[in-house]
Nucleic acid binder design. Structure first.
Lengths: 146, 146
DNA sequence: TTTATGTAGTTGCATAAACAACTATATGCC
DNA sequence: GGCATATAGTTGTTTATGCAACTACATAAA
């Protein structure tokens, strides 16, 4: 029997990622309550651009673990919200460089604070040591499957 | 500073649930390769009904951590695929009891095997002890936020 | 220079999720 | 019984995902 064979009763929660879904919903709710009017998917793109402005769409695909059509459409929506701008690269005309607008900058501090707060809500009663191991496991799972 | 304050660099992966997404995609891919022609969301409903046939839609909502419209539409699709049937309850006419069809039964063994296989792929190189702790953390997160 | 091949991004289509508003039925209280 | 309230399920609308097919541009080899 393989090392990590799951008992049936334990399988469902792991596969469906209930914890991640719960975190996502809570973050969205916290955004809404605080008047941050973006989706968490849009936020995940902004988050990458706050780390490094001017990424290409393909770089955003890799960074956010989304496919190209998903990024195309998230950027369509973010452009309509005037939070990012597509700028055609001069070096390589296939590439769009994505830049944050000043309006996006106004969202950074508040949304990052809400994200941290949400994680603290999520991790009430969990020790730092447990969190470290959980992160290692999830990272390993991601590496195994990506 | 709160006990589990996240460093920024660690925040993203946890919030976006990259590991869960990776598992979901791999399971869907494994289904497809094996000729199991359902979505993982549909599978998650069948999974609950294999544990207990004849649940109400509300019970399926609770069991799968989805809202009512999501279950309504998943069941619409599952009915079109002839995998489940809605049966109005005689006791309470608001309630639909959901029953598996024989066609659904044919999917059970194969799909459960693929789910277990997928988890084993995901957890390569992770010890049982680490998995136990990760499960505890994720369960706690779920309990904190649900 | 032409041709083949690869890469970046978009579009079409089907499925699913989140939220609000809605219908129908049940329950509890006067 | 009649009314208020709660519960079960559906529908509409917007956003996002997954996959395949497509266009445009770049690169490298003949």
């Amino acid at each position: 029997m393989p090392n990590n064979q799951f008992k049936k009763s334990e399988l469902y929660s792991f596969i469906t990622g209930k914890a991640s879904i719960a975190i996502a919903r809570r973050l969205q709710k916290n955004f809404k309550q605080a008047g941050v009017e973006i989706t968490i998917e849009q936020w995940s793109v902004l988050y990458q651009l706050w780390k490094e402005d001017g990424m290409s769409q393909q770089q955003l695909c890799d960074a956010t673990f989304r496919d190209k059509p998903s990024i195309t459409r998230l950027l369509d929506n973010l452009e309509r919200l005037k939070l990012v701008k597509r700028v055609a690269s001069k070096d390589d005309r296939r590439i769009n460089m994505i830049y944050l607008t000043p309006e996006a900058g106004e969202l950074q501090e508040k949304s990052m604070e809400l994200a941290n707060q949400t994680l603290n809500e999520a991790l009430q009663g969990v020790t730092n040591g447990q969190v470290e191991i959980a992160k290692e496991v999830l990272q390993r799972v991601y590496e195994n499957l990506k």
